[in-house]
């Protein structure tokens, strides 16, 4: 029956070699579905195809080599360490040769001495712990606030058009600018510090997530729809995981902004019920005109920033990118 309709559908080019067959004889019965091919000839053909395909698959794929630990050490860990050592050596050399005033340009050993002094008095440990705790808690609050906000803005276009530029603008505004206002609102309490950190980190996280969602290939959304995903499941099963690289980049930047904002807030807002953090330590050393202490604090702040990046974000990012094949080889 469908054949008759077909011949009227459109202009059928009549060719002498065309034979119209009944559909019944042509079309395989659907109930063959689960049964393995019965005849020996088809099985033979299937095995041929199987081995042919296996051979081609082998030819067209390279086994992936996981980078060896030693190789990773020499290519990514060693170079920066060597560079820092060279930097310290140059610094020491300068101090020995040029003999600058030690109260303006201290040598590496003076800074080390200031650091160990702070350690012995317990100030360094207190400062590091206080700052780290605030930094991490503040960052986590920013994640909790920024993630739903980012998702909302990414998925609701009119909202994004309205709010997006403001969020991007907030990213440009140095979060230190919020410190005076925060002090007036919250006084010299931890709330001031958290507020500044929040204002510093949230825009980065929101922007990262929006950028991640925007870069999701439309193909993947289309496939999700074709596979039968509704709005919610499309978001959770397809869009969010696909946007993960952008989101993680946003988180990384958000952490950097958190840490920076925290230090700024701690330097400016001292006293009250605000605890003793690295920024406070830095400010205290400045008041004592202790350049060794100032540089020691700067180095510790820098070191912690790098450490968090190295032990947390870098492995997270590397693992994610490798799984997606976005990391070129082992380099």
């Amino acid at each position: 029956m469908p054949h008759d309709e077909n011949s009227t559908a459109g202009r059928v080019a009549t060719q002498e070699r065309i034979e119209t067959l009944e559909a019944d004889t042509e079309i395989p019965a659907p109930d063959l579905d689960t049964r393995p091919p019965s005849s020996g000839a088809t099985r033979q053909a299937n095995d041929d195809l199987r081995s042919l395909e296996a051979g081609l698959d082998r030819l067209q794929t390279d086994p992936e080599h996981a980078p060896r630990a030693w190789q990773r050490f020499t290519t990514s860990v060693l170079p920066p360490i060597l560079f820092v050592l060279a930097l310290i050596a140059a610094w020491q050399l300068y101090v020995v040769i040029a003999q600058p005033r030690p109260d303006i340009v201290p040598g590496p050993l003076d800074v080390l001495a200031a650091m160990s002094q702070a350690w012995e008095s317990g100030r360094l440990q207190t400062a590091v712990l206080t700052s780290l705790e605030r930094g991490v808690v503040g960052f986590l609050i920013a994640v909790v606030v920024g993630t739903p906000l980012g998702l909302l803005l990414a998925e609701v276009k009119p909202l994004r058009r309205a709010v997006g530029p403001i969020i991007s603008g907030l990213q440009v505004l140095p979060s230190v600018a919020w410190v005076p206002a925060a002090i007036l609102w919250f006084g010299l309490t931890d709330a001031t510090v958290y507020f500044v950190v929040l204002m510093g980190a949230t825009p980065s996280i929101v922007n990262g997530l929006i950028a991640g969602v925007e870069q999701v290939p439309p193909q993947l959304r289309r496939v999700g729809t074709v596979l039968g995903a509704g709005r919610t499941r499309l978001a959770t099963l397809v869009v969010l995981p696909a946007a993960l690289p952008g989101y993680v980049a946003g988180l990384k930047q958000g952490w950097a902004f958190s840490w920076r904002s925290l230090m700024a807030a701690e330097i400016i807002a001292v006293g009250g019920t605000i605890g003793f953090g690295l920024g406070s330590m830095l400010q205290q050393s400045r008041e004592l005109a202790d350049i060794g202490g100032v540089l020691a604090a700067v180095l510790v702040i820098l070191f912690i920033g790098i450490l968090i990046e190295l032990v947390f974000f870098a492995p997270l990012e590397r693992r994610m990118l490798r799984r997606r094949g976005l990391l070129g080889g082992t380099r």
Binding site: P217, Q219, R222, L237, P241, G325
Partner: peptide, 29 residues
């Protein structure tokens, strides 16, 4: 029941293994 579609690009989810990609379709079914 609708139709299944295959495109020119495989459009597999890059964060899922081959099996998980197929499982995603099963899950959505």
């Amino acid at each position: 029941e609708g139709a299944a579609v295959m495109f020119q690009e495989s459009a597999l989810m890059p964060w899922l293994t081959a099996r998980q990609n197929v499982e995603l379709a099963l899950r959505l079914r």
